[in-house]
């Protein structure tokens, strides 16, 4: 399997299939992050495209010492923050926009589970969803970024422009808060 760097180099040299391979590799992680942050399908579809096209347009400026996952999640984060800022402004202006904001309710069922397991999982999911919604935006962000980017706390702290201690403290407080709402 080719490394991300090899694929990026091939894409720079004009290989569209290399770009396609990168897209396949990261689409689910990036999209899940964006969707869970925004809670809006339509917005996520747009943001997702914007993220990858930004990469395609800037590929010649891409430095090989950068890690692709760091780069793509940094761009995703910036665009999500912009979106949330804008949608808050819109929401303040007009409340009834018919927004389909349903954070964290987008799920994909695994087919090989028994009905009991599905029921149990569904119950578990709603509990976790509700607990997760109790977190602040910043706390949710660090959780989602950590999980879907698979980057280290050090790398995440660089993306967020925060000391690693701050990121860890934020996540630790988030964990404590989650625990209050989760039956353990």
């Amino acid at each position: 399997m080719k490394s991300d760097d090899e694929l990026i180099k091939a894409f720079k040299d004009g290989s569209d299939s290399a770009f396609s391979e990168l897209l396949t590799r990261y689409k689910t992680r990036v999209y899940s992050y964006v969707l869970k942050m925004t809670g809006n399908r339509t917005a996520s579809d747009d943001l997702f495209q914007e993220i990858f096209l930004k990469f395609a347009a800037n590929v010649n400026k891409y430095r090989p010492e950068q890690k692709f996952s760091s780069w793509i999640f940094a761009v995703a984060r910036n665009l999500v923050i912009d979106y949330l800022r804008k949608s808050k402004r819109t929401a303040m202006g007009s409340i009834d926009e018919g927004q389909e904001d349903r954070p964290l309710l987008e799920t994909i069922k695994s087919p090989e589970k028994t009905p009991e397991e599905i029921a149990l999982l569904a119950e578990d999911k709603t509990t976790i969803e509700k607990a997760f919604e109790k977190l602040s935006e910043e706390q949710r962000e660090v959780f989602l970024m950590k999980h879907y980017s698979k980057l280290s706390f050090r790398e995440i702290s660089e993306i967020m422009g925060l000391p690693i201690g701050t990121v860890l403290a934020r996540m630790s407080r988030a964990t404590a808060r989650l625990r209050k709402y989760l039956p353990l």
Binding site: K27, T28, K36, L104, T107, I108, S110, L121, Y148
Partner: peptide, 14 residues
């Protein structure tokens, strides 16, 4: 629990 949940609820773009 939360990690499993994230793993179970990944979504793909259309």
């Amino acid at each position: 629990k939360i990690s499993d949940y994230f793993e179970e609820t990944t979504a793909s773009p259309p």
